[in-house]
């Protein structure tokens, strides 16, 4: 890389400039001691309100109803934080939570209005509550829920919104708004069906995406587990993730912990797609994977591993430039210069 050494960027350590990152690092990173062995940890529950936003990832888990996959400490934190708004009964556990609201109709007049807050699904109830000041806006015991229905209607602003209509066995019906109405319906439905274990044991890794098959676009042709060999200063490292081939997006690979796909190739950027046997040095590959998918691109060769490497190779060769013109990887042509 030819950049003037004098102009190289220098990192800054100024605590004022780095405070938010430092707070993030000390709240979310660093070593936790093993809970069972030694410790009383109070990492999250008692910190200031806006800093709590730093744990947005946890909110996402909650939205997907993945509480079951959490350790007891995290669940205890969620219980504590919910308990500030709603009094939970002993043995009542939070299953899922998301932003939402309740369409409140004033019984004494015809006035009606949306009251926004958070929706919690617990092991016993469906609750809409408000944080400040804490107030339960609406609730129903799960045992009393007799019907769940998604409804679309224009919002005040004119956009089409999906709402969840909850019928209860006293003949009443409540209209709820939710960040993810369809998912909320499924979560409540699963609870009512007694399955309850919506994402029990699901690995934190990847399951938030995987849980949402219904939302995959029609343009997605092929998707599967794929390991990508990233080249580090210390050598190659295999990373787990998901490969997708979408007619619009092209071929992508993403580790769900990453913000964006680390591979993004349109068909005409793939110059070759072939298979190699995994060498004995591929010790860190998951067991049972014997073939490596090799993709040629203008910027170099990409190595991916999958139990379905052959299928990936066929697909990508078919759509790629190589497949259409039947040329191989372009060789670096330095002999003729």
């Amino acid at each position: 890389m030819d950049t003037g050494r004098d102009e190289d960027m220098q990192p800054t350590r100024d605590p004022q400039a780095t405070l938010s990152e430092l707070v993030d690092a000390l709240l979310n990173k660093g070593v936790y001691l093993d809970l069972d062995l030694v410790i009383t940890v109070a990492d999250i529950p008692l910190i200031g309100i806006s800093l709590r936003a730093a744990i947005a990832g946890m909110e996402t888990m909650l939205e997907y109803g993945m509480m079951n996959g959490w350790d007891e400490r995290t669940r205890a934190w969620v219980r504590d934080s919910v308990a500030r708004q709603v009094l939970l009964r002993p043995d009542e556990d939070v299953v899922a939570g998301m932003a939402g609201g309740y369409y409140w109709q004033d019984p004494s007049s015809s006035a009606a209005t949306w009251r926004q807050g958070r929706i919690y699904l617990t092991t016993e109830r469906l609750i809409v509550c408000r944080r400040e000041p804490p107030e339960v806006l609406w609730q129903a015991a799960l045992g009393a829920v007799s019907g769940l229905e998604l409804r679309t209607e224009p919002s005040v602003g004119g956009a089409i919104r999906t709402r969840l209509l909850v019928r209860t066995d006293d003949g009443a019906a409540a209209l709820l708004s939710a960040a993810e109405p369809a998912r909320l319906k499924d979560l409540v439905r699963n609870r009512l069906d007694g399955t309850g274990q919506i994402a029990a044991g699901a690995p934190a890794f990847g399951s938030s995406q995987a849980g949402d098959g219904a939302e995959e676009p029609d343009t997605l042709l092929f998707k599967g587990d794929l390991w990508y060999q990233e080249i580090r200063a210390t050598g190659p490292v295999w990373r787990g993730g998901t490969g997708r081939y979408d007619v619009q997006e092209g071929f992508t690979w993403q580790d769900p912990r990453d913000r964006r796909p680390a591979i993004r190739l349109q068909p005409d950027e793939i110059t070759a797609a072939g298979i190699e046997s995994a060498g004995t040095d591929e010790a860190r590959l998951p067991a049972g994977i014997s073939s490596i998918l090799i993709l040629g691109t203008a910027e170099g060769t990409i190595r991916l591993a999958s139990a379905r490497a052959e299928q990936w190779a066929m697909l990508l060769r078919g759509v790629s430039r190589a497949g259409r013109r039947d040329t191989g990887v372009p060789e670096v042509d330095d002999a003729e210069s």
Partner: peptide, 26 residues
Amino acid sequence: AGRLYPQYRRRLATLSEDLAENRHAH
């Protein structure tokens, strides 16, 4: 950003021993 990410990540990875995405970024 989607087009640049793979390239930037790859360039930084070749110079680093380990990488961790910050998910709570402002």
